[in-house]
Write a protein that binds this DNA or RNA. Structure first.
Length: 358
DNA sequence: TATGCGTGGAT
DNA sequence: TATCCAAGCAT
């Protein structure tokens, strides 16, 4: 199967054209200043499912705050989440810190340079493992991401559904055959850079492509039809009443989310699953759930928070409460000007704009 | 294998 | 406005 696909394909020519193009056209990105395995690692985690332009400022702040493995290992998880705030997929941050602590304690603060130990670290999957081994340690290991599957599906005219997990394994086998032993870092980064800058999902710029001559999809004029990717099913919408509960000292009730699942260990304003509770029982439910007696006020606005797999529809309502003693460990009464110390998901950062005083 | 897991930008 | 997508991983 693989042998047939790569039959009559000049791998050495592909490597040379790709790597030369990469060295001439690669972007000057902050994580390309050196090959520090820790910084390569941080960048690869941040870049998962996230665009380069989004990552750049986060990477700068993160490395400034945690310049070394030891600094990140010593940090408080809440501070790490705060630094990650707005970047999404927060388990990446928690897993990264856990894995860094593992490297400090088990590997003498040296990022392991072998597939087995590296791949066993939390948050390091097949792609990230290959990326670190090739970029930081110059090892010819495949690093197959969405770019690689798109580029190779076109160049080799592969018509498998890239949404299926097993298909990614097929691409890893192709890449193992095709990767350069002389410059695996430039090869892997070159395909990704090509996918990001030239061989884009829509309207690829084939006239600028260094491997156009070898591209089977271009030859047949079908580059726009590849890769083949089945569609995700659409998200379910869940309506909530989100409460800005304020006392006379201008403090607000917030809660820390569960340590697992969606937005784990992030903070939020109280949210009432209104389909289950009903508008008439909000006060009762809030007292049961948070131990806080509230008087509901005006509706302040609404927000939509779109996740990959679900949508929150938030109706924002203001509420007041007397001077209460919060007993639940995960609930706090916090001064308005201290809210910025806590990590919030984006929808709840936006909620703060609706706050108003007496 | 399918699903849960964020967010913002491009089209 | 709706859809897609972006250097994936855990379970």
């Amino acid at each position: 199967m693989i042998d047939k696909t790569l039959q009559n394909f000049d791998i050495f020519k592909f490597q040379a054209n790709l790597i030369n193009w990469y060295h001439a056209n690669k972007r000057d990105l902050p994580w390309r200043k050196d090959q520090d395995p820790y910084k390569v690692w941080v960048s690869e985690i941040m870049l998962q499912q996230t665009k380069v332009d989004t990552v750049i400022p986060y990477f700068q702040r993160f490395i400034t705050k945690y310049p070394t493995l030891q600094d990140l290992a010593d940090a408080d998880q809440q501070d790490v989440l705060k630094t990650w705030e707005g970047l999404g997929y927060y388990s990446r941050a928690r897993n990264l810190q856990n894995a860094v602590r593992e490297v400090v304690s088990a590997y003498g603060s040296k990022v392991p340079a072998n597939p087995k130990e590296l791949g066993a670290l939390k948050g390091v999957g097949p792609y990230t493992q290959g990326a670190i081994l090739s970029i930081a340690f110059n090892q010819p290991e495949p690093a197959v991401d969405g770019n690689v599957m798109r580029v190779l599906s076109r160049v080799l005219k592969i018509e498998e559904d890239i949404a299926q997990p097993k298909v990614k394994k097929h691409f890893e086998r192709y890449t193992k055959k095709m990767i350069s032993d002389e410059d695996p870092s430039a090869f892997n980064q070159g395909i990704m850079e090509l996918g990001a800058l030239v061989c884009t999902p829509k309207s690829p710029m084939c006239m600028l492509c260094p491997v156009q001559e070898q591209c089977r999809a271009f030859e047949e004029g079908v580059e726009q039809e590849l890769p083949i990717k089945s569609k995700a099913k659409k998200q379910k919408t869940i309506p909530y009443v989100a409460l800005l509960i304020r006392n006379e000292k201008n403090q607000y009730v917030i809660e820390k989310r569960s340590e697992t699942g969606l937005l784990a260990n992030m903070w939020q304003f109280p949210m009432v699953p209104i389909d289950e509770i009903g508008m008439d029982h909000i006060e009762n439910w809030v007292e049961m759930e948070y131990g806080v007696q509230v008087d509901l006020g005006n509706k302040l606005g609404k927000l939509k928070h779109v996740f990959s797999h679900l949508i929150w529809q938030l109706d924002i309502i203001e509420a007041t409460t007397g001077s209460v003693q919060v007993t639940d460990k995960r609930v706090e009464l916090v001064d308005k000007n201290r809210l910025a110390d806590y990590p919030f998901p984006v929808s709840h950062q936006k909620m703060m704009k609706y706050m108003r005083e007496e």
